[in-house]
């Protein structure tokens, strides 16, 4: 959408234009085959009862009607997915900001400390780390053993419907590195003069943070929140590997529902419908965020 509006139509194409297009071809081919084609096919499938290896019969809106009215897991999965986003996105961004502010200083060895904090993000989405998380938090795992050693009661982190989702969210929040690096870069370019001016006017630390730091880094903050929202609403690996959606479906995010319908029951049409609902949910949140951005995101060239 944004792209078409930026391009003005021309009557004649110069050689230079064609050359530009030539350079774009690899990307265009990749986009068409790897993104546009699946995008359209999944939409087509979502109106059919296509099963893997079976034939394709169009069933109109049946999949969507079934999802909204008869699927016993859909509303729960939608709720779990939204909760997942609600826990992880603020948690991750706030933690990233706090750590970024802590690391935004010039002391010896700060480079090493920054690297250390970034390491968890390098494992992002890996199955190994999710398995490790499961081993740490399961009944009789290291967390429970440590709690028992210092006299705390043991908890069934992954076996209790109330704790399982927050425990998985912790893993996601722990991988705050990429947001942190961006926020750190943003903090570094906040002009020092602004702080000095505030100090002269007698502004305290809180005032400086709230009226200088936040507005100055708001574009990056906005980008982080947007990025994380899109990412976390489609999370699959951690809940699938750690709890397989259980206990009692308390971590059964839309991604798992989609995966099971598509790859365990081979119902590709139905799975495509779920993926489109997921897409629309993410679209709504993205648009909402964009809608609010004009109230709090501050761009230097707009003043």
């Amino acid at each position: 959408m944004a792209k078409t509006s930026a391009v003005t139509m021309k009557k004649h194409y110069t050689k230079r234009d064609c050359k530009g297009l030539l350079y774009l071809i690899p990307w265009l081919v990749g986009f068409a085959v790897l993104q546009l084609y699946p995008f359209i096919t999944s939409l087509v499938y979502s109106f059919s009862d296509y099963t893997m290896g079976g034939s394709l019969n169009f069933t109109g809106l049946d999949n969507y009607i079934k999802l909204f009215t008869r699927d016993r897991d859909f509303w729960n999965s939608l709720k779990v997915t939204l909760l997942f986003g609600l826990y992880v996105v603020p948690g991750k961004v706030i933690l990233a900001l706090l750590v970024a502010m802590f690391l935004n200083r010039n002391i010896r060895g700060i480079g090493i400390v920054r690297t250390l904090y970034y390491i968890p993000s390098l494992f992002g989405g890996s199955v190994a780390i999710a398995l490790l998380w499961r081993l740490m938090f399961m009944d009789g795992g290291i967390i429970n053993s440590m709690a028992a050693a210092i006299g705390l009661p043991e908890a069934s982190f992954l076996g209790d419907t109330h704790y399982a989702l927050p425990t998985i969210c912790l893993l996601e929040i722990w991988q705050f590195g990429s947001s942190m690096v961006m926020l750190l870069a943003a903090l570094k370019i906040v002009p020092k003069e602004l702080y000095e001016a505030a100090e002269i006017d007698g502004g305290g630390r809180w005032v400086k943070f709230w009226h200088i730091t936040i507005p100055q880094i708001s574009p990056i903050l906005f980008f982080s929140i947007l990025n994380q929202t899109i990412q976390e609403l489609q999370n699959f690996t951690s809940p699938y590997t750690i709890t397989d959606g259980g206990p009692l479906k308390s971590t059964n995010v839309l991604g798992i529902l989609l995966y099971k319908q598509g790859f365990s029951y081979f119902k590709m049409g139905y799975a495509s419908a779920i993926s489109w609902i997921e897409f629309i949910v993410i679209l709504i949140f993205t648009l909402l965020l964009f809608g609010t951005s004009k109230f709090w995101v501050h761009y230097a060239d707009e003043t």
Binding site: V33, L34, Q35, P38, S42, I230, G262, M268, F279
Partner: peptide, 12 residues
């Protein structure tokens, strides 16, 4: 777009 590719690539 990248996200959609993630959703849809399997079906492609």
């Amino acid at each position: 777009a990248a996200m959609l590719a993630g959703c849809g690539s399997s079906s492609s």
